[in-house]
């Protein structure tokens, strides 16, 4: 077992344009997947976290039950199967119908997959908000939707931010599964480089280091945002202690 570190370094420099191309796609997949997954998760999480209101009409009651069953199925399937299989299945299933490219398909699939995880994160976040908050909003006359958007979501998102942010880190890594539908993200590019040079250990060492840099940067960024979110308001108290 030998690793030629000099060779690894030279490859990183020489093949940088190929690596860089892959990095851009990997980051794009992580960001798009996390953002759209988050939006999907908000909607699904809201449907699943919605308490049964005794004032609901029978139709609304039915729709809530139906919505919960349907979203439950979605979460069960997408969390219970590997994303690589989801990618292959959905990409090839729909290709004859909508004639999409692997990158477009990849964006859609990683978003749907992330949405399933986000939905469970946000559902627990929504349910962890004190029911008194909802009662207060209702007592002012706010509708269910207004209550969700202006009172519940901001608190649920804040409470679950570490878990939400973690999905970005997960997606940076898991987007490599998109190589199965020949998306030229970082892992796909690395395989190409390694295959053409017939030097696997050195090239994958480069790849591992690049992934580590990406995930470290993302973690750092998330920590900064989280600190800002929690610190912002303490200033106000000092100002007014007059």
């Amino acid at each position: 077992m030998t690793i030629d570190l000099g060779y690894a370094w030279d490859t990183l420099i020489n093949s940088w344009p190929m690596f860089w191309y892959g990095i851009k796609l990997t980051v794009a997949f992580a960001v798009v997947g996390t953002v759209f997954g988050f939006l999907i998760g908000l909607i699904i999480g809201a449907i699943r976290g919605m308490p049964a209101d005794p004032l609901d009409s029978p139709f609304t009651k039915f729709m809530k039950k139906f919505g919960k069953a349907l979203t439950g199925l979605y979460i069960w399937v997408f969390r219970g199967t590997p994303m690589m299989i989801q990618a292959c299945f959905i990409y090839y299933l729909l290709r004859p119908v909508i004639n999409w490219g692997p990158v477009t398909a990849g964006f859609v699939i990683i978003s749907i997959n992330t949405g399933a995880y986000m939905a469970e994160i946000l559902r627990s976040g929504i349910q962890s908000v004190d029911p008194g908050q909802t009662e207060a909003a209702k007592s002012l006359g706010m509708t269910n939707l207004q209550t969700m958007i202006f009172v519940i979501f901001p608190q649920a998102i804040k409470n679950t931010f570490p878990a939400i942010g973690n999905q970005l880190v997960v997606n940076l890594k898991d987007s490599c599964m998109m190589n199965a539908i020949s998306v030229t993200e970082l892992f796909f590019q690395s395989s190409s480089i390694a295959g053409s040079k017939m030097r696997f250990v050195e090239v994958y060492l480069d790849t591992a280091i690049i992934y580590l840099v990406l995930t470290t940067a993302a973690t750092w960024l998330l920590n900064v945002i989280e600190r800002k979110m929690t610190n912002k308001k303490t200033v106000a108290l000092k100002e007014m202690s007059c």
């Binding site: 004190d130 008194g132 908050q133 009662e135 007592s139 002012l140 006359g141 608190q155």
Partner: peptide, 21 residues
């Protein structure tokens, strides 16, 4: 909602919106 806006409520546990000043 119209009715509730005309009949205010003050709760034992205050229930101020935690995400707002």
């Amino acid at each position: 909602t119209d009715y509730r806006s005309k009949v205010g409520m003050v709760f034992q546990s205050f229930n101020l919106f935690n995400n707002k000043n």
